[in-house]
Design a binder for these strands. Structure first.
Length: 849
RNA sequence: GCGAAAGUGGCGGAAUUGGCAGACGCGCCGGAUUUAGGAUCCGGUAGCCGAAAGGCUAUGGGGGUUCGACUCCCCCCUUUCGCACCA
């Protein structure tokens, strides 16, 4: 009798996998490939079970696919640049490089202790110059194509830390690090022209059939396409300008009673000069500008605005309307100006009520009527309907009016159809040290020029003193900043900002295909074989950022003729968090479950199995120690089973189950269960990604093998084979064969979840071949077919009896059997059968009166 | 406010095409084994009535479609997530 002690062999198998290079792969055109990827990790120091869940999900898929005959690429690496390491450097004086490398090696060891089947030879970190070199190379290609450009824009500024913060680093108006209220500053920034692909990316969401609906709808909302028109209103007097507005409700244009500009609108400064009280005008504009962004973040803010005193002419009816400036109109969206239609837009309505603007009703909703007095109405009427008071367009439906009005405006040169997106170009400049240097120079004579490819990478210079003071740490290193212009040879200065780390993560999955390439980011050949990623899993928090950026990069590569696909990820799984005491694990909350201590106590396999068994992968789960113990118990149970049978199973002369006939009914039942389990587990893992039900199917099989083996008759046969070996009776061989079939299939199917134990059992069962690449058990439909069914009999939809019948019994016979059944007859007394429904061998329902 | 998803025993969760609701596991109860505890093995475990046989009620609530609804349709409630002045 041996005992299940994972501590005795976990390390042994991990060592063998590494020394045999079991998970390393090469291109093999003869075999179908499968690229299985989990979102790579930010090396924070310690992985907790929440992180680890994702890696286990990917590992089960990768290991299963390997056994199914696929050439599986399953790599891992590190998203190693970023603020936390730099902040730690400021706080504790440890260089980001040092802390990052230390964290990586610790986390790598954690993943290895879990037995995740990564091709570690492909590992890289984004802070490796051999990786970020290609960020720079790519940046230059994008610059050449006009996809990377510089412009002035407003950014979040923390006055205490004296640095710029990314949008996502501003939490409730304040700096995420020190809580100081952030300000808005205008700075020169580099942008990626993602908006060029906005429409394409949006339209292609329809093709992402294997992505969760939730992620697709988040992306659609984020891109935020809206169709409408741009219309020019000519200013009267004062300025000889047009004010262009964007609207999706051109049908309401006869209801315009004002134009409203955002405080950031380009005309605002000139309008202020025409104002009777310039200083008051400018004061208000500045107030709005500083308030605007923080107001948006905090949610609700009172609508404020003022009349500029200027007027503009509505090209449709020639009416003259006042031009206002208000805080609720966004500068970055559309044209930065809107037409106010208080009768048909709730925001305009509120604004009009507050500031006494006229309200003009021009669209009568279907079934509604035109209000007699505007004083009565309490909210805008936003529904489509029939136009009133709209000149030649009166009586048209909203839809028809939009079309005709748009054409009307276009003919007269006062408007055009327009599509606007909520998505903005991606600002990638970061005034930080720990990131990829932007490979650009500024020369007095030649302007902004890229670093020549031959000078790449622009290495991140050594830095010792992290103060967090002053902007762009790199600007403090004069040896870095001062250089020569590659065009004229004169003095030039380097760009001192670094790239957003989302640039790093937007294409790392291509690099895994060809991680050692020195000539290019990757070769077309390797990427053509391995990409797109077949199965990608990670947290839903990346639904918009990383997953949109990557879709953008794929298209950039495509247009650079480096790849020949549009979409980088075929199938996406977003895994749920692991909670402890109802909330996400975090160091600050002190509720972190450390995988290492669990592995120490129960072994890697029990942890792996529990995490997969507790719920479907997309769901959030609450961590429970007792659940983990249950999984450990199951593994112990499997172990004991194999241990009990190993003598008999390793006897020579046992025929394969498929070579024998005339099994007893008990044996048939176990075989049926074995093959049905193969079917269920395969579908659950491969197609449905319902790992929890795959495991419960295997648990059922184990229960079945136990009850089969516990019978004294079978146990006698087991002993007979153990003692007599090849001289055993055919009956004894049959019993052992059936168990052998079940246990072997079980060990194979369980191995993606519990690879260490299964390797050990495989060895124990005398198998020579390598389990990692062993064949997935083969499902035999004929064996899985039940010979007998239990058919429920209902009367008026209520369960009354069960019939045990042979498979394939004709309807007629089933019906008469049901009617003869005593339990059924009891319920049929004094009742008339109106109808009998037989659902193809599954159920009988008698309808009575 | 808008959008999406979800709501099933004490708990995590099953139910593949509209066809036996509660698979599997946790927990709990009982039995076997054991000097004892632990471990293990076996059995029980939605609620209510009943000694039992059996019956009734149950998938957030209310209606509907159907021979039959956790599953489809309508209304409502609750929870979670996402978006939130995008004109």
């Amino acid at each position: 009798m041996s005992e299940y002690k994972p501590q005795d062999f976990d390390k042994k198998w991990q060592g063998k996998w590494a020394s045999n290079r079991t998970f390393e792969v090469n291109i093999d055109p003869a075999r179908p490939k499968f690229y299985c990827l989990e979102m790579f990790a930010y090396p924070s120091g310690h992985a907790h079970v929440g992180h680890v869940r994702n890696y286990i999900i990917g590992d089960v898929v990768a290991r299963t696919k390997r056994m199914l005959g696929f050439n599986v690429l399953h790599p891992f690496g590190w998203d190693a640049f970023g603020l936390p390491a730099e902040n730690a450097a400021i706080k504790h004086g440890i260089h980001p490089e040092e802390s990052t490398r230390g964290n990586i090696s610790h986390m790598k060891a954690q993943l290895q202790r879990l037995g995740i089947s990564y091709a570690w030879e492909r590992e890289f970190a984004t802070c490796d110059s051999s990786y970020y070199k290609w960020n720079q190379w790519l940046f230059i290609r994008m610059f050449e194509k006009g996809l990377a450009y510089r412009k002035r824009s407003s950014v979040n500024w923390c006055p205490k830390c004296d640095t710029v913060l990314a949008n996502e680093q501003v939490v409730e108006d304040g700096c995420w690090r020190c809580g100081t209220l952030t300000e808005i500053r205008d700075l020169e920034q580099w942008f990626f022209r993602i908006t060029k692909y906005a429409n394409e990316i949006l339209e292609a969401t329809g093709k992402l059939a294997k992505w969760p609906e939730k992620v697709l709808s988040m992306q659609k909302n984020w891109i935020g396409r809206s169709e409408g028109s741009k219309i020019k209103f000519k200013m009267e007097g004062g300025l000889e300008e047009n004010i262009e507005i964007f609207t999706t409700r051109l049908d309401t244009v006869f209801g315009v009673t004002a134009l409203i500009l955002s405080p950031e609108h380009p005309l605002v400064d000139r309008l202020s000069l025409l104002s009777s009280d310039k200083s008051e005008f400018q004061k208000k504009v500045l107030e709005f500008r500083s308030q605007d962004r923080s107001a948006r973040l905090s949610g609700e803010v009172e609508k404020e605005g003022f009349n500029t005193g200027q007027k503009a002419r509505n090209p449709f009816d020639g009416s003259s309307v006042e031009v206002w400036i208000a805080n609720f109109v966004l500068g970055e969206y559309g044209t930065g100006a809107v037409m106010a239609v208080p009768a048909h837009d709730q925001r305009d309505f509120e604004f009009a009520r507050k500031f006494g603007l006229p309200i003009k009703f021009v669209v009568c909703p279907n079934g509604g009527s035109v209000p007699t007095s505007m004083d009565q109405i309490t909210e805008a009427s936003i529904d489509y309907g029939k136009l009133v008071n709209s000149g030649e367009f009166t009586e048209l439906t909203s839809l028809e009016a939009k079309k005709q009005m748009s054409a009307w405006a276009q003919e007269r040169g006062v408007g055009e159809p327009s599509i606007q997106f909520r998505l903005k170009d991606w600002g990638i400049s970061r005034q930080r040290y720990w990131g990829t240097p932007i490979p650009m120079l500024s020369c007095k004579k030649d302007g902004i020029v890229p670093v020549p490819d031959s000078d790449l990478p622009v290495l991140l210079p050594p830095m010792t003193n992290f103060t967090g003071q002053g902007r762009s740490p790199l600007s403090q290193i004069s040896e870095f900043v001062n250089t020569t212009c590659p065009v004229c040879g004169g003095p030039a200065s380097r760009e001192t900002d670094t790239m957003d780390t989302f640039v790093d993560s937007s294409w790392y999955f291509y690099r895994f295909a060809d991680p050692l390439n020195n000539e290019a980011p990757f070769s077309a050949k390797t990427v053509k074989y391995w990409l797109p990623v077949d199965f990608y899993s990670g947290g839903v928090e990346h639904a918009i950022l990383h997953l949109i950026y990557s879709r953008f990069f794929a298209r950039v590569f495509r247009d650079l003729e480096m790849v020949d696909h549009d979409e980088p990820f075929d199938q996406l799984l977003t895994q749920g968090m692991v909670l402890k005491n109802g909330s996400a694990m975090s160091k600050s909350k002190g509720n972190v479950i450390d995988p290492d201590s669990m592995i120490q106590k129960y072994g890697a396999d029990a942890l792996r199995l529990y995490v997969m068994f507790v719920a479907p992968p997309e769901k959030e789960v609450e961590w429970t120690d007792s659940g983990l113990e249950g999984s450990y118990r199951f593994l112990t149970r499997v172990w004991r089973l194999a241990d009990k049978w190993k003598e008999a199973l390793t006897s020579s002369g046992i025929p394969g189950a498929s070579e024998l006939t005339d099994f007893s009914s008990k044996e048939k039942t176990l075989r049926q269960k074995t093959h049905d389990t193969i079917r269920r587990v395969t579908v659950d893992i491969e197609e449905r990604h319902q790992f929890n039900t795959a495991i419960s199917a295997m648990m059922e099989l184990v229960n079945e093998i136990y009850s089969f083996g516990e019978s004294s008759e079978i146990d006698k046969r087991r002993q007979e084979v153990e003692n007599l070996k090849q001289k055993s009776s055919i009956q004894a061989f049959k019993a052992v064969t059936v168990v052998a079939e079940a246990i072997e299939a079980l060990v194979r199917m369980l191995s993606p979840f519990a690879p260490h134990m299964c390797e050990e059992l495989w060895d124990m069962l005398g198998k020579q071949e390598d389990l990692t690449n062993a064949e997935w058990p083969i499902f035999d439909e004929k064996v899985a077919r039940l010979e007998e069914f239990i058919v429920p009999v209902q009367i008026n939809g209520k369960m009354r009896s069960r019939l045990t019948v042979a498979a394939g019994m004709p309807e007629k016979e089933l019906k008469s059997l049901a009617l003869k059944d005593p339990a059924v007859r009891k319920h049929l007394l004094e009742k008339k059968i109106v109808k009998v429904i037989v659902a193809k061998g599954r159920l009988v329902n008698l309808v009575t009166k």
